[in-house]
Design a protein around this nucleic acid. Structure first.
Length: 290
DNA sequence: GTCCAGGTCGCGC
DNA sequence: GCGCGACATGGA
């Protein structure tokens, strides 16, 4: 089954895919030349499909496996999810306008960059974000791989590829499974609690995808989630298309220390003031400044 | 063994 | 509102 999605005028497939590290985390995977991004996806009907996504001129091609035919509702879900993952509905004109006025950032416009790959669900993005905190990237990969492999739905009997686990799948296991078997350490409690709050209807995270929701409301919601501090909040807001919070972590400090302060870290207040001339686009300004 | 990683929580002040 | 230790785990 093959679907085409019309692309916005300015779009860069490989940049959108690789400018943020999510494409290296399962269930995302890619071929060697990075022309195709793939992932196993569990649809809301329970059907498990493999998505292969690549660009063909002004269209995105989404191929699913031939054996499984999709209902029109399932096809719509695939299109909706891919559109979300690649931010095809997002308007970058205001950001590009600011880049045009900044010598070093003009190339962002000419290269049509700015879009950063995200997951189909907020649950997945929050879990992954929590798995990046206070650890190394290689352990983020291994924790995510364990989480997906041990709790996700298998693509097919002869496959070692899995979909990202649903919150329900997390709760189907014993409370200590995340710690004892998935080896998520102290983060286990955060993830388990998040899954509980989603299943109980305490949170309705996918409602936060709507652009008309004020950023403040999202900030308020995210602050409730244990394991989400200022850094994780900034990442999650970025994933939701809100770029006004800086991800001040060790990497941020390392970058600005070397680039703007001759190797000496300025006080916290001053860190928060960096990139302030970028207004609603502080995150992207930092991200593409690296 | 000890330190630390793209932090955050919960406490005490 | 701020400073501080604890937190699981694996790699250097």
């Amino acid at each position: 089954m093959k679907k085409l999605i019309k692309l916005p005028e300015k779009f860069n497939f490989s940049a959108t895919t690789t400018d943020h590290g999510w494409y290296l985390l399962p269930p995302f995977h890619h071929n060697d030349n990075r022309q195709t991004l793939s992932r196993v996806e569990e649809l809301s009907t329970g059907k498990i499909v493999m998505l292969h996504i690549k660009q063909d001129n002004d269209k995105l091609i989404v191929e699913t496996d031939d054996k499984k035919t999709l209902t029109s509702k399932e096809s719509e879900e695939v299109i909706r999810k891919v559109t979300w993952m690649f931010r095809l509905d997002e308007d970058f004109s205001a950001f590009y306008k600011m880049c045009d006025d900044n010598g070093d950032m003009q190339k962002i416009v000419t290269e049509s960059r700015g879009r950063l790959l995200r997951s189909p669900s907020i649950f997945e993005d929050i879990v992954k974000t929590i798995l990046t905190t206070n650890t190394t990237w290689s352990r983020t990969i291994s924790m995510t791989t364990h989480f997906v492999t041990l709790l996700g739905e298998r693509y097919s009997d002869d496959s070692e590829l899995f979909a990202f686990p649903t919150p329900e799948a997390v709760l189907r296991k014993d409370k200590h499974f995340l710690n004892d078997t998935v080896k998520l350490g102290y983060r286990s409690e955060y993830i388990y609690e998040l899954a509980q709050n989603l299943c109980n209807g305490v949170y309705d995270l996918d409602a936060l995808k709507k652009t008309e929701i004020p950023t403040e409301d999202i900030v308020h919601q995210m602050r409730e989630i244990k394991g989400v501090g200022p850094y994780a909040l900034s990442i999650i807001l970025m994933l939701l298309g809100r770029y006004d919070f800086l991800p001040v972590d060790s990497e941020f400090k390392k970058h600005v220390k070397n680039k703007y302060f001759a190797g000496k870290l300025p006080p916290k207040k001053q860190l928060q003031q960096l990139y302030k001339e970028w207004g609603d686009y502080k995150f992207l300004a930092y991200w593409f400044d690296r």
